[in-house]
Amino acid sequence: MWVSSGDKWLVVHVGGETDIDRAPMLADALLTATNQSDGPREIVVDLAELSFCDSAGLNAFIQARRTAAEHGKRLTLHSPQSQVVRLLKMTGAYALFPVTDT
């Protein structure tokens, strides 16, 4: 996981697998990104390299979305793999996030 940023956005790049063991690291990175009071208002979570996500990872996304909203920011999921899209849709969480392909 790594972070890149510009004036108007911050991108959290997530790869590999996010399960109960790795979800705390994701949650910490997203919390840091969303809590920056002087940071960009647009937080993009790049999921192009994320091959697996379980409910612990999904919880990290949902908590980050809530924190972002509390700080007047928007959290967008970018290029999720089919497994992640399936998880989001099965749980009803897909409707909570803007999801982009490019």
Score class of each variant (00 low, 15 high):
Met1Glu: 03
Met1Ser: 14
Met1Cys: 09
Trp2Ser: 15
Val3His: 06
Val3Glu: 07
Val3Trp: 04
Val3Cys: 07
Ser4Val: 11
Gly6Glu: 08
Asp7Gly: 15
Lys8Ala: 15
Trp9Pro: 00
Leu10Phe: 05
Val12Cys: 08
His13Ala: 11
His13Cys: 09
Val14Gln: 01
Gly15Glu: 12
Gly15Ala: 14
Glu17Ile: 12
Glu17Asp: 12
Asp19Ile: 09
Asp19Gly: 10
Ile20Val: 13
Ile20Asp: 02
Asp21Pro: 00
Arg22Leu: 13
Arg22Tyr: 03
Ala23Thr: 02
Pro24Ile: 13
Pro24Asp: 08
Met25Val: 14
Ala27Trp: 00
Ala27Glu: 06
Ala29Asn: 02
Leu30Glu: 02
Leu31Thr: 13
Leu31Glu: 10
Leu31Lys: 13
Leu31Gly: 14
Leu31Cys: 10
Thr32Val: 12
Thr32Lys: 14
Thr32Leu: 11
Thr34Met: 10
Thr34Val: 15
Asn35Met: 09
Asn35Ser: 14
Asp38Met: 09
Asp38Tyr: 07
Gly39Lys: 12
Gly39Asn: 09
Gly39Ser: 08
Gly39Tyr: 09
Ile43Tyr: 03
Val44Ala: 07
Val44Pro: 00
Val45Ile: 11
Val45Phe: 03
Asp46Phe: 07
Asp46Cys: 11
Asp46Met: 09
Leu47His: 03
Leu47Tyr: 07
Leu47Trp: 02
Ala48Glu: 12
Ser51Glu: 11
Ser51Thr: 14
Ser51Met: 08
Phe52Val: 03
Cys53Lys: 03
Cys53Leu: 09
Cys53Trp: 00
Cys53Ser: 01
Asp54Met: 07
Ser55Arg: 03
Ala56Ser: 15
Ala60Thr: 06
Ala60Glu: 01
Ala60His: 04
Phe61Ser: 03
Ile62Lys: 12
Ile62Val: 15
Gln63Arg: 15
Arg66Phe: 04
Arg66Cys: 02
Thr67Asn: 13
Ala69Ile: 06
Glu70Arg: 15
His71Gln: 13
His71Val: 03
Lys73Ala: 03
Arg74Ser: 08
Arg74Phe: 01
Leu75Ile: 08
Leu75Trp: 06
Thr76Cys: 05
Thr76Gly: 02
Leu77Gln: 02
Leu77Cys: 05
Leu77Pro: 00
His78Met: 04
Ser79Asp: 04
Pro80Glu: 09
Gln81His: 13
Gln81Met: 10
Ser82His: 11
Ser82Cys: 04
Val84Leu: 11
Arg86Tyr: 00
Lys89Gln: 08
Met90Leu: 15
Met90Asp: 00
Met90His: 05
Thr91Glu: 00
Gly92Asn: 05
Gly92His: 06
Ala93Val: 01
Tyr94Gly: 00
Ala95Met: 05
Ala95Phe: 01
Phe97Val: 04
Val99Thr: 04
Val99Gly: 08
Val99Leu: 12
Thr100Tyr: 02
Thr100Val: 11
Asp101Gln: 15
